[in-house]
Amino acid sequence: MQHARVLNSGKIQNEWTSIWHIQTEAFFLYSDMSQDRTILVCAKETPDTYSDLSFSGGSVQFSNPRPVLNAYDASALEEALVLSEAHGFRVHVVMIGPEKASETLRKALAMGADEATLLTDAPKDADSAVIAKILAAFVEQFGPDAVIMGRQSQDTDVGLAGGMLADHLQWPWTTNAIGIRFEQEAFWVKRQGDSAQEWIDSPMPCLITCSNNLNDPRIPTLKGIMASKKKPMHIVAIDSLPGGDALSTLAPSTTIESLTPMPERAAGELVEGDLETLVEALMKGLGSIPETGVGS
């Protein structure tokens, strides 16, 4: 069995292109995984959608050109790290992305994950369904005790991949977690529902998707950043996963035809002045909406 390439980030810049071409015939070996239980965090890199947005030629640009770790996945990772500190899970992060996504993945290691895998050469324009099938192949091979991931990605806001993955695996799942505990060999997840919060108890293995409202992800410390350089990052081409030939040629079932600026709401009237003026304007505004019962 061959080992997948384990990268140390010192090499990343220098040997950027030449070192990636390792074919893994069978799968790869992970360091002493057998002893520990593992949480697998699925993470994605996205554009910095909270920086300023502009359009050019039908595509969207952001003022910050550097991609970021999807905020919801960062919350998932934070939660996995907290569980790991309390219960000794190993935390492994998997990301599907181009080779240079290893920079973003390295941040996950700097936050405290033990190990990471970057799955490269995804089919073009992969949608949630394609991503879920690739992740399912990875999870089946890897065999984690739980998968924790963001409930949606901050760029597309689609939010389907988690449920799709759970169904492929035939694992119990809980979405939109705002709290996670590990007790009596089970994950107790508090999820935010429509009009209540639900405590759902799932045995292992299970899948959880996280709201970003369950924690504030830690910022990597200098020590964390230094340590991350020595942590293993496996670079694996998708076609070397089990069933990989089919995976690497999957066609997306949904495609984006165009992106256009959202029609903006026009700003209305802005009222400044003394208290009387302000209240009068408000009374008039509220009175114009029948449902308020004001002015009827």
Partner: peptide
């Protein structure tokens, strides 16, 4: 598009193996 639907839509799509468009 309730939280209840969001919880199941992806899994329904995978189960039926059909395209899904959310929201």
């Amino acid at each position: 598009n309730t939280e209840l639907t969001k919880d199941v839509l992806g899994a329904c799509g995978a189960r039926l193996d059909v395209p899904v468009i959310a929201d």
